[in-house]
Structure formats: structure tokens, C-alpha cells
């Protein structure tokens, strides 16, 4: 035997292992495809079911209604998706903003109070956006500056917001009316209301921002592999802070639509949080990269919206919706952790 024997055997050994790796890659790829197609099939199935059994579900007016009712949730879920994208998908350590629901409630209250205090619409809007951004900044300081886990930091900020809202409103309904709110409710163009148009515009802007710009790509790098982002010279901290502020601004935008819909502020806005978490999580199953996307988030929101709407048309108690949402969260998280465990090379 000579040293050549070793030289000949060694590559054969490693060669085979690489083939195996390739097969694993293909399997992981197929698996993520199955998840994606399965989710879309589920969506179509639910839609078909309600169209068949729920009277009036598929008619145009009702669909417009579903979109209208989903706008607030969609804007908040967009914010959540941006935060998750930048902070990473790890359910414990990754990005999450639990304060979104409470921020919405606070912003609605601020707008109503400012409006009733005699401020002009534009000033009230400015104050509302200032409030949303400030809450986002508070999250950013806690997460990026102080290094608190996002899960805990935003939970704390959620309580601060809820408390501030109670102080402002004394836990009562504050009715308000203003020319701006009137036109949001009243005006329409091409059969779509102002709320619908705001949703369309926000969706388009955010899709371009997240999927089509340098900023979006770099944000994905920050969330996907922080070391790599740092090595590429990105200012990781600034990106992270930016996501929380952006989420805060989206909460403020949602608040103005909410104020128009409810003609003011009423307690209990924070209840929307579960849906926000669910729809943002759900959006990941629509993407090949298993990351939250704006388009996927919108699909998920409309899915949940039609579910609620379908239940209403079928006279099923809306209390069931909470349970269904909980089951869906478990399902989505389970699918994701299963697929990352298998594909985790």
C-alpha cells in the first residue's frame, strides 16, 4: 500500500457526503413548497366553503366590507411584519412588537381628545403620528439601547400605552367628529372608500419598500444573520430602531382609520393584538424564504377577515373566532419549527 491509497479514498468519502447534502437540500426545498401550496389551498378552500354555504359571502359588496373591516388589522400587521423581518424570526429572541395593539388604542384616544380639545384636524393628525412614533422610539430604546428582549420590552411598553390610554379616557367612550373623519367615512372613488385606498396605498408603498429597495434587503440581512450584516458594514442598530418606529407610525395611521370607523375612541382596542401576531406569523408560510412579507401579511389578514365575516353570516358566535385564531397560531408556529428543524443545515 502506498500513500496514494489514502489520497484516492479520501475524496470518494467526502464526495458521497456532498451528494447526500444535495439530496437534503432538495427535500427541504420541496417541503417548503408543499407548505406554501398547502397554505394557499387552505385559503381557497375556506373561501370556497363560505361562498357555497354563507348567503351573500361572495358578493362584491360583502367583499368590500371585509376589506374595509380588515384595514386597521392589516396596517398593524404590516408593522409587526417589518419588526419581525428586522429582528429575526426566532419566537423568543427575535423581533416582535406586542405594544402595537395598545399603541393603536392610545393613538385613537389621543386623536379623539386632541380633536375635542379644538385642535384642527391636521394638528390632531400630527400629534397622533407623534404619539405613535414616540411609542416606537420607546420600544427602540428599550430593545436596541438597553438590550432588553423585544418580547419583554414591548410587553412593558404595551402596559405603559394601555395605562396612558386609561388616564386619557378614564376608560370611557370618547365620541368625536371632525371634517377629516367625516370624509374618511363618506368619500369614495371607483367604488372604494378612503379606508380601502389608504390600505391599497400602504400595501403598495410597503411592498416596494420591503421587497424592492436597498433598505428592505438590508433589513432582511439584519434579521437573517446579524453577523453578516455587520460584516457588510451595515448599521444594524439603526435598522432595528427604525423598524420599531415604523411600526409605531403604522399604528398611528391605523388609529386615524379606527377613529373614523368608531367615530371616536372606545376602550378595548388592545384586543386586536392576537390577530396582529397571528397574521404576521401566518404571512411567513406564503414566502419561499419563510419570512414575513407584506403581500403575505395582507393575504393572511384577508383570510382572517373572511373567516370572521363568514362566521357572522352563518350566525356562528364571534367568540369562536378567538379559539380559531389560537389554533391557527399553534399550527403556523408548529409548521415553521418543523420545517426549520428539518432544513436547519
Amino acid at each position: 500500500m502506498s500513500s496514494n491509497v489514502l489520497a484516492d479514498q479520501a475524496p470518494a468519502f467526502t464526495e458521497r457526503s456532498v451528494d447526500l447534502e444535495d439530496r437534503d437540500i432538495r427535500r427541504a426545498r420541496r417541503q417548503s413548497q408543499v407548505i406554501r401550496l398547502g397554505s394557499i389551498a387552505a385559503l381557497i378552500a375556506v373561501f370556497a366553503y363560505f361562498s357555497a354555504v354563507a348567503p351573500g359571502f361572495a358578493n362584491l359588496g360583502n367583499i368590500a366590507n371585509v376589506i374595509e373591516q380588515s384595514a386597521v388589522l392589516a396596517l398593524l400587521a404590516f408593522g409587526m411584519s417589518i419588526v419581525v423581518l428586522g429582528g429575526g424570526g426566532d419566537v423568543i429572541r427575535g423581533g416582535i412588537d406586542l405594544s402595537l395593539g395598545a399603541n393603536l388604542g392610545l393613538c385613537v384616544a389621543v386623536f379623539a381628545v386632541a380633536s375635542n380639545a379644538g385642535f384642527s384636524d391636521w394638528l390632531a393628525v400630527a400629534i397622533t403620528f407623534g404619539t405613535g412614533a414616540a411609542v416606537g422610539l420607546l420600544n427602540a430604546i428599550a430593545v436596541v439601547g438597553l438590550g432588553v428582549l423585544p418580547l419583554l420590552a414591548t410587553l412593558a411598553v404595551m402596559n405603559i400605552c394601555a395605562g396612558a390610554e386609561l388616564v386619557l379616557t378614564q376608560n370611557t367612550v370618547i365620541s368625536t367628529n371632525s371634517p377629516l373623519l367625516g370624509s374618511i367615512v363618506g368619500l369614495s372613488w371607483l367604488g372604494l372608500s378612503v379606508t380601502d385606498w389608504v390600505l391599497v396605498a400602504a400595501t403598495v408603498v410597503l411592498i416596494v419598500l420591503v421587497q424592492g429597495t436597498r433598505w428592505g434587503l438590508r433589513l432582511q440581512a439584519v434579521g437573517g444573520q446579524r453577523q453578516a450584516a455587520r460584516a457588510a458594514g451595515l448599521r444594524v442598530q439603526a435598522y432595528l430602531a427604525g423598524t420599531y418606529v415604523a411600526a409605531g407610525l403604522l399604528a398611528a395611521l391605523a388609529a386615524i382609520l379606527q377613529a373614523a370607523r368608531l367615530s371616536g375612541s372606545s376602550p378595548g382596542s388592545g384586543d386586536i393584538l392576537l390577530s396582529v401576531v397571528l397574521t404576521s406569523l401566518m404571512s411567513t408560510v406564503f414566502s419561499r424564504r419563510l419570512l414575513p412579507t407584506i403581500g403575505g401579511t395582507l393575504l393572511s389578514v384577508l383570510f382572517i377577515g373572511s373567516l370572521i365575516n363568514g362566521f357572522q353570516l352563518l350566525n356562528v358566535s364571534s367568540y369562536w373566532v378567538n379559539g380559531v385564531q389560537g389554533v391557527l397560531i399553534l399550527f403556523v408556529v408548529a409548521v415553521r419549527s418543523l420545517s426549520t428543524r428539518r432544513g436547519g443545515a
Binding site: A221, G224, A229, A232
Partner: peptide, 13 residues
């Protein structure tokens, strides 16, 4: 970044 395409990974930054 694991979720990047080859081109994105090459040109990031």
C-alpha cells in the same frame, strides 16, 4: 444570510 439568493448575498451593502 441564509434567506438571501446568491446575487443578494454577493452584493449586500
Amino acid at each position: 444570510v441564509p434567506s438571501f439568493t446568491v446575487a443578494e448575498a454577493l452584493f449586500l451593502g
